[in-house]
Computed example of a mutant assay.
Amino acid sequence: MLTRASNVAQDDALGAAGSALLAADDVSISFRGKPVLETVSIAVHEGEIVTLIGPNGAGKTTLARVLLGLAAPTSGRVLRRSGLTVGYVPQRFPVERIMPLSVQRFMHLNTGVSKERALECLAETGAAALADVQMTDLSGGEFQRVLLARALARDPDLLVLDEPARAVDFAGAAQLYALIAAIRARRRCGVLLISHDLHVVLGASDRVVCLNRHICCEGVPQHVAAHPEYMRLFGPEAAASLGIYGHRHDHTHSLSGDVCGEGT
Rank of each mutant, 00 (worst) to 15 (best):
S41K: 04
R232E: 13
G172C: 10
T136L: 03
R150L: 04
S195V: 00
H45G: 10
H196F: 11
L101G: 07
R92S: 10
T264Q: 07
G261H: 08
G57T: 12
E116Y: 02
G18C: 04
K115Q: 11
L202I: 10
H253N: 06
A23I: 09
H45P: 00
R4W: 08
V146M: 05
L158K: 04
A127N: 06
C216F: 00
I194Q: 06
V86K: 02
A9V: 01
D11C: 03
G257S: 08
E218G: 07
A118Y: 09
S114T: 15
R81D: 02
E38K: 14
P156F: 10
R213M: 10
T252Y: 11
L84E: 01
Q175G: 03
G57H: 08
G246C: 00
G140K: 09
G219N: 12
P94H: 08
V201I: 12
R145Y: 05
Y245A: 13
K115T: 15
Y245F: 15
A17K: 05
G219M: 08
V191K: 07
L68T: 06
T74F: 08
L52C: 07
A72T: 04
D206I: 12
A173M: 11
H253A: 02
C189P: 00
G57A: 00
G140E: 05
E262P: 03
T252N: 06
P35C: 02
L37I: 14
S114N: 03
R80K: 11
R117Y: 06
T85R: 15
A118D: 11
A151F: 08
G57Y: 09
L52K: 07
H199F: 12
D132E: 15
P100Y: 11
R105I: 01
S41D: 05
L67Y: 02
D162I: 11
V191D: 09
G235S: 00
K115I: 13
A239Y: 00
R184W: 01
G59I: 09
A123H: 09
H247L: 08
A43V: 01
A167T: 12
G18N: 03
H251K: 12
K60E: 10
Q91F: 03
L101F: 10
T136W: 02
T136A: 15
D26S: 15
R166N: 14
V44P: 03
R248F: 10
A24I: 03
L52F: 04
L119M: 10
S139F: 03
G235L: 00
R117L: 03
L192R: 12
I183F: 02
A239F: 01
T136Q: 14
V200E: 13
V95R: 01
L198T: 06
I215P: 11
A127F: 07
V160S: 02
R154G: 10
G47F: 07
A17S: 14
G126E: 06
R150Y: 07
V27L: 05
R213W: 08
E229G: 01
G112L: 06
A131I: 02
V160P: 04
L2Y: 01
R248Y: 07
D137F: 04
H247V: 08
G69P: 04
S75P: 03
A167Q: 15
C121D: 05
I215T: 14
A118V: 10
S82V: 00
R65C: 05
L22A: 04
